[in-house]
Amino acid sequence: MPDTDSISPTIGLAIMAGAFAVFALIEWLLPVREARQSQPRRWFTNIALFALDTLAIRLIFPLAMVGGALWAAKAGWGLFNLFAAPYWLAFVVTLLVLDLALYLQHWATHRVPLLWRLHRVHHSDRDFDVTTAARFHPVEIVLSMLWKLGVVIALGAPALAVFVFEVGFAVATLFTHANFALPGRWDSRTRTLLVTPSMHRIHHSDREKETNSNYGTVLTLWDRLFGTYVSSAAKGQRDMTIGLKEWEGEQTARLGFSLWLPFTRR
């Protein structure tokens, strides 16, 4: 088994910061859509939400997912800690199960009214770029971490697999929210396995059928398997309306609005 003592949060943060910089540069050079709102205000709000999310996670879950995996291994809890399995099998199964778990979580945030109140903070962004990937309400992030920790502990997941998934999922989230498109046929070819920005952008359309589709972040497998895959937007990538019909004003770019949105009745 690989040495898990060398797993460092700093490595993960460095990879995510590098991915953010690369995707931000590409979308600045080759944007698919023109901005509808002030970019400085939106970026401040979205990045501030990310900072609050990170603070909430560090305060409530200081060990996070990798720490949960290490703790489960020490306690002997979880499937792979109770039953012997080849390390490679435990590694692959962990990646697949965690990706499925996040697909199911995303589906639930659109179907359970209380969860949708939180998740609509993400969808209220009227533009779509790499910072949209950071736009989540802190309460939703805390609930998401509870769900992921439960899955990790139940699996007895290898810590290294959890680390790889966590970093890979974060990079994929940045990639799928970026305001650029893969060239030519590369988009459709990539979609046979992985979610692309053009596929996930449909999920941020204000049309209900399109909003309730394309829940995957890494693999397209789950959307295809469960019938939630939509290949194209009715109005096309450039002309479809991003956001929610209930909130179309400039207030959606404000931090205070985003934090209070789950508690409004509309």
Rank of each mutant, 00 (worst) to 15 (best):
M1Q: 11
D3V: 06
D5R: 10
I7W: 05
S8Y: 00
P9M: 04
T10L: 15
G12W: 04
L13D: 14
A14Q: 09
A14R: 06
I15D: 00
M16P: 03
M16V: 15
M16Y: 11
A17L: 14
F20I: 07
A21D: 10
V22A: 14
F23D: 03
A24C: 11
L25N: 05
E27F: 02
W28M: 10
W28Y: 09
V32D: 08
V32C: 09
A35D: 15
R36L: 05
Q39L: 15
P40R: 09
P40I: 14
R41L: 15
R41G: 14
I47K: 01
A48D: 04
A48G: 11
L49F: 06
L49T: 07
F50Y: 13
A51E: 09
A51W: 07
D53L: 04
T54H: 04
I60F: 06
I60R: 03
I60T: 13
F61E: 01
F61P: 01
F61I: 11
P62F: 08
P62Q: 09
L63M: 14
A64I: 01
G68V: 09
L70T: 14
L70R: 09
W71R: 14
A72V: 15
A72P: 12
A72G: 12
K74D: 15
G78H: 05
F80L: 05
F80T: 02
F80W: 00
L82G: 04
W88Y: 06
A90S: 06
F91N: 01
F91L: 02
L95V: 03
L96P: 01
L96W: 00
V97R: 00
L100F: 12
A101P: 02
L104S: 07
Q105W: 14
R111V: 14
L114H: 07
H123S: 07
H123K: 03
D125N: 06
R126K: 04
F128N: 05
A133N: 02
F136R: 01
V139L: 13
E140N: 10
E140C: 07
L143G: 02
L146R: 10
W147F: 10
K148F: 01
V151T: 06
V152G: 02
V152A: 02
A157E: 05
L160D: 14
V162H: 00
V164T: 07
F169D: 03
F169L: 13
L174I: 11
L174N: 04
T176V: 14
T176E: 08
H177I: 05
A178K: 00
P183L: 06
G184K: 08
G184W: 06
R185P: 08
D187Q: 07
R191C: 07
T192R: 15
L194G: 04
T196L: 03
M199V: 12
H200Q: 10
D206W: 07
R207N: 14
K209W: 10
E210R: 00
N214E: 12
Y215N: 05
G216I: 02
L219D: 03
L221H: 06
R224Q: 10
R224G: 08
Y229H: 13
V230K: 00
V230L: 09
V230G: 06
K235Q: 14
K235E: 14
R238F: 09
D239E: 11
M240K: 11
M240R: 09
T241V: 15
G243S: 05
E246C: 02
G249M: 02
E250G: 10
R254S: 15
G256T: 15
S258L: 15
L261H: 02
L261S: 03
P262S: 08
T264I: 12
T264G: 12
R266D: 11
